[in-house]
Amino acid sequence: MPSTTIHFIRHGKVENPDHLLYERLPGFHLSDLGRRMAEATADYAAADPQLSDVVAVYSSPLDRTRETAGIILDALNKVRAERGEEPLELQTDSRIIEAGNEFRGKRIGYGEGALWRNGNWRLVRNLWKPSWGESYQHIAARVGDFAQEKVREYAGKQIIAVSHESPIWSYRHLLETGHPEHNMFLRHTALASVTSITYDSETGKMLSISYADPAKDVR
Score class of each variant (00 low, 15 high):
residue 108 I to C: 11
residue 154 Y to H: 15
residue 160 I to E: 07
residue 218 V to P: 06
residue 216 K to E: 15
residue 142 R to Y: 04
residue 199 Y to M: 07
residue 211 Y to C: 11
residue 61 P to D: 03
residue 176 E to R: 14
residue 44 Y to E: 05
residue 201 S to C: 14
residue 92 T to V: 12
residue 122 R to W: 07
residue 215 A to H: 08
residue 79 V to P: 05
residue 199 Y to N: 13
residue 19 H to N: 15
residue 17 P to I: 06
residue 79 V to E: 13
residue 182 H to K: 06
residue 45 A to V: 07
residue 40 A to Q: 12
residue 212 A to S: 15
residue 19 H to S: 09
residue 120 N to T: 13
residue 79 V to H: 11
residue 88 L to E: 13
residue 77 N to R: 13
residue 51 L to F: 04
residue 93 D to S: 02
residue 186 L to R: 10
residue 130 P to L: 02
residue 215 A to D: 08
residue 210 S to M: 13
residue 196 S to C: 08
residue 158 Q to L: 09
residue 47 A to P: 00
residue 8 F to T: 02
residue 62 L to F: 00
residue 97 I to A: 02
residue 202 E to K: 15
residue 43 D to W: 00
residue 215 A to P: 07
residue 37 M to L: 04
residue 188 H to W: 02
residue 77 N to A: 11
residue 93 D to L: 05
residue 166 S to A: 14
residue 146 F to W: 07
residue 184 M to C: 04
residue 52 S to T: 10
residue 64 R to V: 03
residue 139 I to Q: 04
residue 153 E to G: 10
residue 160 I to Q: 04
residue 77 N to Y: 11
residue 177 T to S: 09
residue 59 S to L: 03
residue 59 S to H: 07
residue 92 T to A: 04
residue 193 S to Q: 10
residue 78 K to Q: 15
residue 211 Y to A: 09
residue 101 N to R: 10
residue 132 W to I: 11
residue 68 T to D: 06
residue 166 S to M: 05
residue 143 V to G: 00
residue 177 T to E: 03
residue 84 G to I: 05
residue 117 R to L: 14
residue 137 Q to F: 02
residue 177 T to A: 00
residue 88 L to C: 13
residue 189 T to N: 03
residue 125 R to P: 01
residue 158 Q to N: 15
residue 167 P to D: 01
residue 133 G to C: 06
residue 148 Q to Y: 09
residue 193 S to W: 09
residue 27 G to H: 04
residue 93 D to F: 01
residue 41 T to I: 03
residue 115 L to E: 15
residue 58 Y to L: 03
residue 197 I to V: 15
residue 128 W to C: 12
residue 32 D to A: 15
residue 16 N to F: 03
residue 65 T to A: 10
residue 164 H to Q: 00
residue 85 E to A: 15
residue 44 Y to T: 02
residue 178 G to P: 00
residue 42 A to E: 11
residue 146 F to H: 01
residue 137 Q to C: 06
residue 167 P to N: 00
residue 124 V to A: 12
residue 177 T to G: 06
residue 38 A to C: 09
residue 78 K to D: 13
residue 52 S to H: 06
residue 22 Y to N: 02
residue 172 R to S: 10
residue 143 V to P: 00
residue 22 Y to F: 13
residue 56 A to T: 10
residue 46 A to W: 01
residue 31 S to Q: 12
residue 53 D to L: 10
residue 149 E to A: 14
residue 135 S to R: 06
residue 125 R to S: 10
residue 127 L to Q: 14
residue 57 V to K: 08
residue 153 E to N: 10
residue 74 D to E: 13
residue 25 L to Q: 08
residue 29 H to Y: 01
residue 84 G to H: 11
residue 172 R to A: 12
residue 67 E to M: 06
residue 159 I to W: 07
residue 162 V to Q: 04
residue 15 E to L: 08
residue 93 D to P: 00
residue 134 E to M: 03
residue 76 L to G: 08
